[in-house]
């Protein structure tokens, strides 16, 4: 009884903490100055329509580098905790033929769609994180449908390391080519034409590297969770 009372009091306290946020909130009618500066410099300096991509890759690029590091550490933790041991493997039933053929037809299309999303991240909604996740869901489809499907772990780790190193190298290139105050500045490549694929500096390349890194890391998370420590 006392436990329920304490739980109720704790929830009431949390609700009270959020009370001023909800009461004093009014939907703003115009952008605040920071967002306005981001919008105008994304359009004028970087020649990029998608302002969210401009913030993620360029203006808040150091945060994104940190987030990718956190993602890598979490993936490494999952792989360490669920590493291969001598437990007996759980029996898996083979999927039906329709399922297998449909999945092997759809999975390459889903992966190509993921590549499309992260190469066009600076023009349309999407980008490295979304594209990487879509690629991982294509690999998940194959893992679910086909019993004998397995991908090369060395290849996945190679792609992951290569894209991580490439991301840092692109950041350092901006530092060396433009000036010593411009780590992660994508403007060392030409701005290009408005709404063309090779535009807005190095942003498509950096976001593609992020997409490959996220996709390979989430694929290895799915593989670790699927085997779960069994052989």
């Amino acid at each position: 009884m006392i436990k329920y009372l304490l739980t109720f009091l704790a929830l009431l306290g949390i609700g009270y903490m959020f009370f001023p946020l909800v009461m004093e909130f009014s939907t703003p009618t115009r952008l605040n100055p920071l967002a306005e500066a981001y919008v105008s410099s994304s359009v004028n300096d970087l020649n990029m329509p998608n302002v969210v991509t401009a913030i993620v890759v360029s203006y808040r690029g150091l945060d994104t580098l940190g987030e990718v590091t956190v993602l890598f550490l979490a993936t490494a933790g999952v792989g360490f905790l669920l590493r291969k041991r001598n437990h007996e493997a759980i029996f898996r039933r083979q999927g039906s033929e329709i399922l297998r053929i449909g999945a092997s037809f759809l999975a390459p299309l889903i992966i190509v769609f993921g590549v499309y999303i992260f190469t066009h991240g600076h023009l349309s909604p999407g980008g490295g994180f979304q594209g990487g996740v879509v690629m991982a869901s294509g690999i998940l489809l194959m893992v679910l449908a086909c019993k004998e499907f397995s991908f090369s772990h060395n290849l996945i780790h190679f792609v992951e390391s290569l894209s991580g190193v490439g991301y840092v190298l692109m950041a350092l290139t901006g530092l060396l080519l433009i000036g010593f105050d411009s780590f992660l500045d994508p403007r060392f490549l030409p701005k290009g034409e408005w709404l063309s694929l090779f535009s807005s500096g190095a942003v498509p390349i950096i976001y593609s590297l992020i997409g490959l890194k996220v996709g390979s890391e989430l694929s290895s998370v799915i593989d670790s969770m699927q085997t779960g420590g069994e052989k």
């Binding site: 979304q130 879509v134 869901s137 998940l140």
Partner: peptide, 19 residues
């Protein structure tokens, strides 16, 4: 917020459930 919607649809409804 279409970027966020794409991420949440694939991650929240797809990958998290499967994990």
């Amino acid at each position: 917020a279409p970027d966020v919607a794409m991420t949440e649809a694939t991650i929240g409804a797809g990958l998290t459930t499967v994990v």
